[in-house]
Structure formats: C-alpha cells, structure tokens
Design a binder for these strands. Structure first.
Lengths: 345, 345
DNA sequence: AGGAGTTACGCAAACGTTTTCGTGTTAATA
DNA sequence: TATTAACACGAAAACGTTTGCGTAACTCCT
C-alpha cells in the first residue's frame, strides 16, 4: 500500500540502507548473493526511488518550468508540445505556469517555481511585462544561477538564450506575396507598438511596401489596443475592422499579425459582400488550426511553434547539463514559412 | 548569487539553524530581538524556503500532475486553464504530461510523476488505453494511495472521482434542435465505438431520433477510424465525408461529434454547392475556437472545459487536504450548453 | 603463525527543512 | 539563600537518497 523505500527494504531483508542502495545500483561492493536477493525483492514490490529525495540530494529536479501568457492559444500549445517532446526524451518533466498576460502573475509564478522546484525556465513574457518594461524578476532569477530561455517575445534587455522567429522577415515575405499577387492597397491589422512581435511585423510590412515603391497610407494601418482581445470586447475588434474596410474601400489586401485578426477581417469583408480572394486577399501570421479550417483557407506565415519549443528545450537542457562550461548566450532564429491557401489565390 | 538557506543565515548571524527556522515562523520561543534581527536579514536577502526540502519533510509536493492525450487541442487546453486557475488559488503547481494518445507514454509519464513528484493526478485517458482496456497503471496508482480524478474520458471500471459532461444528453439536445429546425435526414459523423465519448454521443443521437419517430438510417451514420485524425491521412477524412454527402443527397442535417469533423463537413458540403444552413444544417461538439470563427459560425454543444478543469482540481485538492476523512468517490456532471450560431438558422 | 590483502558490509554525513525535547541562564518566590 | 519557574536557545531526528570511509572476517602468502 504505502510507497516502498530503501529503509523498508533494508528492514525487511535485515541489511543496512546503504547495502540496499548499493545493491540496487549494482555496486561491486556488495556480494552477488545479496545483490540478487535485494534486486529480486525490489523488483517484486516494484521499488522506485523517490524523486524528491533525489532532487534534494542532487540539487537537480530534472524539471523545466515553462511560463506562458496563455494556454488557450494554439501557438503556445504547439510550442509546449515541442518542449514536452524533447524534455521527455531527455528525461525531464515540464511544469507549466500561466501568466494570463499579467505581470504580477508572471512574477508570482516564477517565484513559486524558482525555489527549488525546477532547474530552469522557458518563458515568453506577458504583454504587461513588456508594457511595464520591468524585468527584475528575470534578471534576478538569472543572477541566482537559474538559466532562462526566452522564446517568441524575447527581450533584448535580458541576457539569456533566446529562440525567436524572424518576425520582420516573415511579415515582409507575406506582404511581398500580396504585392506579387497584384495588391496595391494593403492594409495591416496589428497591435500597439509595445507588443514586440506586433511592432516587428509592422516593420516588415513597412519594409515590403518601401522596397516595392508603394507609399504607406496611415489610414489603412490599424493598431489595435489590447482590450479587443478580451472577451467582453469581442465585437470591438469587429467594429474596428468593419470601420477600416468601409472607410477605405480601395483596400485589396490585408496583412494581419495574428489569426484572430485575419479571420475577423475575412468575416467582416465577406459581410460587406467582398469576395476573398478575388476582391481582397488576406494573409495572417501563426499557422494555427483556425487558418487551416477557415473558409476560404487562410494563407499564413507559419512560425513552426513545435520547432521553437524543441530548440528552446534543447538549449535549456544543454546549459543545465554543462554547467561547468559557460557557453555564451545564443539567439536562435527559426525560419518562418509562408503557407499558401485559398485566401490569396 | 547562490540560494540562501537556513544554514547560511544561521552562520551569518551566529545562531543555530533551529533558531532561524523558528524565528522565521514567528515562534514565541525566540526573543523579540533575535526574531526581528533574523527576519530583517532574511527579508533583505530575500530568503525563500526550498520547496524540495519542504516536500521531502512534509511528504507533500503541493503539485498536481495532469495527464492529457494532446495539448494541441482547444478542449484540453481550456480544461488546463481551469485546473491551473484553482490550483494556483489554492497554492498548488501543475505539472503536465502528454500521452499523445499512446498507452505506453501514458504509463511512463505516470510512473515518472508518481514517485514523489506530485500529490495526485488529473487525467483523461488516451485513446489507446481505452482501446486496450488496460487500466492497471491507474488502479495501482490509486492503490498506492495517490488520488486520481478522471475527466472527460472517464472509465466506469476505475473507482475514483470523475468530472464528465453528459455526452448523451448533449448530443440528444443537439439532434433535437436540428429536428426542430425541420431536418429529417440527419447524418452523424462520429468515431468508432471504443472511444467512449464518441459512443455516448452516438447514443444521444439515436435517442433523439427515436423519440422523434425518425427511423435511423445506417447509411448516414459515419463511424470514422482513428487514423483520419493523423496528419498523414488529412484528406482521408474529407474523402469519407464527401463520399457520405454524395451518396446520400437527402441529408439535410449533420451532427458531428467534434469540431474538426463538423468543420470538414461544412467545407465539403460547401464545395458540393450546398448552402449552410439553408440546404444542410450542422452542429458540432466542443465549443472551441474553430466553431466561433468558422463561416458560417458553427452551432455547437459547449462542454465548458474550464469548469471541468476547475471542478476536477477542486475535487482533487479537497481529497488531498482531507486525507483523514475518506469521502466517497463522486462523479460530477457538468451541464452542456447548446451555443447557436449561423450554421443552424 | 603472523602479516597483508580482499571481500562484504555498516556508519555517518549531506541535501534543506521542521519540530520535539533538553538545558543553561536568569528572574521570581518561599 | 535555596528552589522553582520562565525564558531563549541548541541538539538531534526525521523525510529518502547517495557515497566516502571504516572495519570485521576471511583468504592467501611466506
């Protein structure tokens, strides 16, 4: 019934705890007889060493802490599946904390985990953290010797390993694609600039326009506030987009920095009687489920979330297992890929 | 730099470890002077007790293990967000293991966690486990004194707390809704019967037909094999559905047991020139993101995943924190809700 | 037979806590 | 002044491991 321990085995077999431990680790210090007896007993009653005790002894938990802003989000979910895959392959567990885009929750979550529960962090900072620009919890964690790998929303101010996508380039390629399909009045639906990836993608958009000699038109650049993402303001998003489309009927292409924006744009455009892709072509960012099952299927810039997670986990575990060597911090860029579906041709 | 421990504080302040421990817990055994001195020092250098040591001492980790078949799945993701919410509120962490619908991975994952890493499990069994009907890993875990709460895919054979939705009733309501909208030839797209929730939903479908005096038509009952869910067989799903629709042009309503099936059905129907909802009305199961953003919006049976997660976490923690009392096992049924969108009217 | 070497095991410390109990010092009481 | 009570603190055990070291009992050699 109760979990078997070395002590209980020792009592049962009338030997010392150390003998049991050594026997189970097949030490030559122990006679073949005793070794076999102990091993048989342990196997019979399915002895498994206690992880907590091992963690305490080794000062390693073999557990990675993952902090993400939201789990109900396909991108983060694919990243986690990548992390979990390599973590498992390399003998680690994954413990997950959600910040819900809140700075305070991010800090609390990290503090809960940093006191021995995990060996290192993989994280994507919350929107609020980016907004407040308060990174002391990150720098302090690193200072205390706990490695961090940041992904997606990486902060240049924090020195650590990072795995990012080339947001600028991904956006640029997307917009160039729209242009190559003949779009001349390409709107962008993006976030306010303090969201790092939003800004980067906006930059890519601007770059593409510039190198194609299309002058930018401020009226068709829609920078949305955070609150449109909250459930209570669901239709705010739709209103803003509708407004954009109605006031600027010349729009023939839309680049949206995420799936939701892109889908909403398609839906609003369709409501206004526009045909996609004939009248308006749309490209989104993040190859989630939504894009695949939208009608028409949405052309998107895939970020390869699973790859990001895998790489992040490898970076972290590599660093954990080579603590003596101090490798310089790396920033790995995962290539984006344009996945073309019916929304553009 | 290195983490502060009681021992280091003790050395620094020239008192014993026990004194430090007691002072930090504001024991009256320690003089006010010493207490204040120690507390000030601890605060200054931001002392936090080591979780692992506490876990070992208390034989409690304050961590819940969650095992799910897939994380890239909106339903499970909402459940996790519910679990995480109440876990955090009640001072617990959440460690996640993915079975990828594999029996072996489920077993390995549970074994990794069961040896001290967590206090209890919340899990939804893998498809393969249901198929093999091998539950020894579950019963053994329970036998060893570690509580389990099963959700969604619950097994009658295993005695533990459960949180489920009333799949039969949810499906029945959905199909009745179709009928009330005038559908007479309602197809169902479901899974093979060994998937428990698939079968239950199929039963609900049959019930609704029967009580409406509509005779069932085997030709429009499509039971899909697992492999259609795998990426390699992506278009297999579509082919099967197309086949169904072409061979049975009288179909005027479709009930699908999950979002993907429903979306694919809509897409195929549309390709065949059918208008949704005019020619064919569609209802899915699981209120995920897909349903909301589909065009037309998909009417679905919402399972309230977040509530499921919250309830499961409460059940588990309640049991953990009342170990002396032995409460009988409960099966909590979360009500489903029909969310009507454009695919039905 | 006496010394050296081998074999097979146990003791104890360590990881970082909490907590019970023991004890030396001081203050209060008879 | 001698006894007791209160106070303030430390020693040690416990949670379950691993591991360096000590040592009793043999075996072997000369």
């Amino acid at each position: 019934m109760q979990k078997l321990t070395l002590k209980k085995i020792a009592q049962e077999l009338d030997v010392s705890i150390s003998t049991v431990s050594k026997a189970l680790r097949d030490s030559h210090e122990i006679s073949k007889d005793t070794r076999e007896k102990i091993n048989a007993f342990a196997k019979l009653y399915n002895y498994k060493p206690n992880n907590i005790a091992l963690s305490l002894k080794n000062r390693k938990t073999k557990t990675l802490g993952v902090i993400i802003p939201e789990i109900v989000h396909h991108f983060f979910t694919t990243v986690i599946s990548g992390i979990e895959k390599v973590a498992n392959e390399r003998g680690y567990n994954v413990i997950i904390g959600l910040s819900n885009e809140s700075f305070t929750k991010e800090v609390i979550n990290m503090e809960m985990l940093a006191n021995g529960s995990i060996d290192g962090f993989i994280l994507s900072v919350s929107r609020e953290t980016q907004f407040l620009k308060d990174y002391h919890h990150l720098t302090e964690t690193i200072y205390q010797g706990m490695p961090i790998v940041m992904f997606d929303r990486a902060l240049p101010e924090v020195e650590c390993d990072k795995v990012v996508v080339d947001d600028v380039e991904g956006a640029r390629k997307a917009v160039l694609n729209l242009i190559s399909h003949g779009c001349q009045n390409i709107a962008i639906i993006t976030t306010k600039d303090y969201v790092s990836v939003g800004m980067l993608r906006t930059n890519g958009y601007l770059q593409a326009l510039q190198e194609s000699n299309i002058s930018m038109n401020e009226k068709i650049i829609l920078k949305l506030d955070d609150k449109v993402n909250e459930v209570e303001h669901m239709n705010l998003l739709e209103k803003e987009i509708k407004n954009l489309l109605v006031k600027n009927p010349e729009i023939d292409g839309i680049f949206a920095v995420n799936e939701i924006y892109a889908l909403s744009a398609m839906k609003e455009a369709q409501k206004l009687g526009k045909n996609i892709p004939k009248d308006i072509k749309v490209i989104g960012f993040t190859d989630g489920i939504l894009s695949k099952y939208a009608s028409p299927g949405l052309t998107t810039v895939s970020q390869h979330g699973k790859q990001i997670g895998e790489k992040a986990a490898h970076l972290l575990i590599d660093r954990l297992e080579n603590e003596h060597i101090d490798t310089p911090f790396q920033t790995v860029v995962i290539e984006t890929e344009l996945i073309e579906r019916e929304s553009t041709f």
